[in-house]
């Protein structure tokens, strides 16, 4: 699936390749590309947990779709809502 259809868009110009999104995506949607930036490799696996967007220190990740109800801002951690990481 081409990236423009993916629910996760990475702004490569802002991405600094810290790997946080890759580590905290519960479904391995993201991976490091040849340029050392995050890129979407399994868009169909995305569960719209927002971990990548919330934890990206560079404002480089935007979700183009969101869960109907949205994620509660009151849950206590990434891990509780988005699933575990490593």
């Amino acid at each position: 699936m081409p990236e423009d259809k993916a629910p996760v868009v990475v702004n490569e110009a802002w991405c600094k390749g810290c790997d946080i999104c890759i580590n905290y995506c519960p479904k391995k949607v993201l991976a490091r590309n040849a340029a050392g930036k995050a890129s979407v490799v399994k868009p169909e696996a995305c569960i719209l947990c927002e971990n990548c967007e919330l934890l990206c220190p560079d404002f480089a990740i935007t979700l183009t779709r969101r869960r109907a109800k949205g994620l509660s801002a009151t849950s206590t951690s990434v891990a509780q809502k988005g699933g575990g990481s490593r």
Binding site: E50, L55, P57, D58, F59, A60, T62, R66, L71
Partner: peptide
């Protein structure tokens, strides 16, 4: 949560913080 880019001065980005710095998250 919604998109927050409208609160950013995008023309002044990317920011100066190092890769992986927690400050961008905060």
């Amino acid at each position: 949560m919604g998109d927050i880019h409208r609160y950013l001065r995008e023309y002044y980005m990317p920011h100066i913080w190092c890769p992986g710095c927690g400050h961008g998250i905060i």
